[in-house]
Write a protein that binds this DNA or RNA. Sequence first.
DNA 1: CCGTATCCCTTTCGATACTG
DNA 2: CAGTATCGAAAGGGATACGG
Lengths: 107, 107
Amino acid sequence: MVKQLPACPVELTIDLLGNKWKVLIIRDLMDGTKRFGELKKSMEGITQKVLTANLRDMEENCLLTRKVYAEVPPRVEYTLTDTGYSLRTVLDSMAEWGDSYKERVNA
Amino acid sequence: MVKQLPACPVELTIDLLGNKWKVLIIRDLMDGTKRFGELKKSMEGITQKVLTANLRDMEENCLLTRKVYAEVPPRVEYTLTDTGYSLRTVLDSMAEWGDSYKERVNA
DNA sequence: CCGTATCCCTTTCGATACTG
DNA sequence: CAGTATCGAAAGGGATACGG
């Protein structure tokens, strides 16, 4: 989690995006609301514990919302907030740079 | 360091950018070549060990170059490669998002 | 189904001391 | 000046088991 907001904007962003899991979660949710199990299945190699922890962080940072349905078996859905969606430009530039990087190293 | 390039572009980028220090180093070097001591001084709170480790990583990932001058006292200069410079768009979008985020949470 | 709790391992990091 | 070496603390993450 981010305890205290850093003054520097880029530092703030990297703190909130934090690790690869958060980035992948954001990108996944760009397609729309997903259940916990869907997220877990789509993210190769993540454990429940780590997925839960990251989702909690992001909820606290207002990047997504968590909705629990009072059903049996339980259903929990995660949805990006507007703030979360607004990360699209950042993710897009990151994806674009990643592609160009791969071209460079393969050349 | 990044052992093996991930297939996913955004994951690749977040792996190479990794932590807040690397982002801050890149941004610092956007202004031009800097010496080790200059970098250290401009980055509040970083230790020599951590700064060195991050610089080595980034050198290995071809984001910057390291030039050692055969002088006493020694002088070592770090310069972004073209690949490193090309991260500008990513950093810009991150800075922009960070600013808008601060407005949201203050509101 | 969607978690939490526990254990343990690995990595990371700060602090400090030392060197060419 | 620009590191490296060492140590010990802390954090992060995997595996597994259990719970509402």
